[in-house]
Design a protein around this nucleic acid. Structure first.
Lengths: 241, 241
DNA sequence: CGAACGCTTGAATCCAGTCAACCCCCGTGG
DNA sequence: CCACGGGGGTTGACTGGATTCAAGCGTTCG
């Protein structure tokens, strides 16, 4: 992925390749030194949790490398994954005392850890940051509401189609010609896809198998799916245009 | 409801009984005069739409009286209601060019209409407002994510139970002893409840009938439901605690 | 190597959707 | 006054899509 593997610990925000794609982009050159004092870059192991729902919301995290999922679990074990979160995003930023969701890593990666109190200090001096956070939250809200539609009003085939289209578009937008656009890297287990789309693992498996039989996709391996007929996928999701 | 029926048109924000329950509460006494210049109070007819998804997002609205629903419709007619919105809330506030959802009135009421550009001007001078908007968005996001869980991981009985519990709690919190706490005023058609919960009208009807047979509720009329056994409802939704 | 995990597939089940009929209420207009 | 129509709601019979349960396979990893 196109981001630097900075040393762990203190980093130099000025040299961060990702900064213009994140919330850090609001800072002027001279402000980045200040930002540096609040930020620490730390590695994250696949499967580990940055925080859990109910934990004290002390830190926000800017994702530098890797991929994460936000989710809520109820006491009978049912889980709903709210969103997958990719490099450049900020998570855990919160005006609440406690986190409202849990965050788990899908891959090894790096995050820039910053005190939420630090964000607050910075944003009191930087109107642009406030505005950016606003925009970010509005954007998150809209994405979440779109996903509500998927959960409430789509069938299994439509859910998986849209899921694949979204990943296809993401991969094309962010990597362009640098990767094979037709092979999607999906480091997400079936059970996580299921909990994201409001299905069971079996149903996810069956729809994938069905798409394969129809030659819409090819299942390369657990985490790679080749798109053979994007038009057909788009047709299935046409009503979401 | 406990809010003033101000004259239509220009209003005096200083005298608004609702102001401390809304985003307007951030303004100092002397700032309310400035706010006045941006705000206009207008009546809203039941069934009318304040705006539709895709409309130019020129105005935000603070709900003074009435009740509204936010929703998205797809081109094949399927609809998902995102949330119901009550007095004190602000809707349509947006950093985007266009609204991302539609807003329709469930009841006759009043809203305070304010230019989004005005909100922007005000918030550049008032850090508290920015912060309040942030809090509001974070709160909305959390509520939305909770509802995602309902849509993705609950069955029909749980959905209706939670729906009723939420209204019960809302009514008790906001009206306290002033109204009969057991009779819920639900000015929402079955089809709207269905589109909110990801069900069909028939299913909603059936669950209501089932609850009635179990003496959990009594259906007074179309828009009034009496809660006979709140404990049983809470038990059904126990996993959401 | 064995155990655990993740994934797939099949068969049976069931919950919610679909289709259809009917009711009630209410407003309208002859 | 009543007839009519339409919107909203309910109920029943049937259907079907997704879940559940169960078995089996391949891969990974201690």
């Amino acid at each position: 992925m196109g981001c630097i593997k900075a040393e762990v610990g203190k980093v130099n925000c000025k040299e961060c390749e990702l900064k213009d794609d994140t919330i850090c982009g609001v800072f002027k050159e001279y402000e980045l030194d200040l930002l540096n004092q609040f930020i620490e870059k730390i590695p994250v192991k696949k499967g580990s949790k940055l925080f859990k729902e109910g934990d004290k919301a002390d830190f926000a995290y800017i994702i530098s490398e890797g991929a994460f999922m936000k989710y809520k679990v109820h006491n009978d074990g049912r889980r709903q994954i709210m969103a997958f979160t990719m490099p450049g995003s900020i998570v855990g930023i919160s005006p609440f005392e406690e986190y409202k969701y849990s965050l788990q890593a899908l891959l090894d990666g790096y995050v820039c850890k910053i005190k939420n109190s630090g964000v607050e200090i910075l944003s009191e001096q930087n109107m642009e940051l406030q505005k950016k956070i606003n925009e970010f939250l509005s954007y998150e809200l809209d994405k979440t509401q779109d996903h509500m539609f998927v959960l409430g009003r789509s069938n299994a085939v439509e859910k998986i189609s849209l899921f694949l289209c979204n990943i296809y578009d993401y991969q094309n937008e962010y990597f362009g010609k640098r990767v094979n656009n037709d092979i999607l890297f999906i480091p997400i287990r079936r059970v996580d896809i299921a909990d994201y789309l409001g299905l069971t693992t079996e149903s996810v498996s069956r729809v994938f198998a069905d798409f394969k039989k129809q030659k819409i996709i090819d299942i390369v391996d657990r985490s790679h799916t080749r798109i053979l007929n994007i038009d057909k996928l788009r047709a299935i999701t046409a009503c979401y245009s």
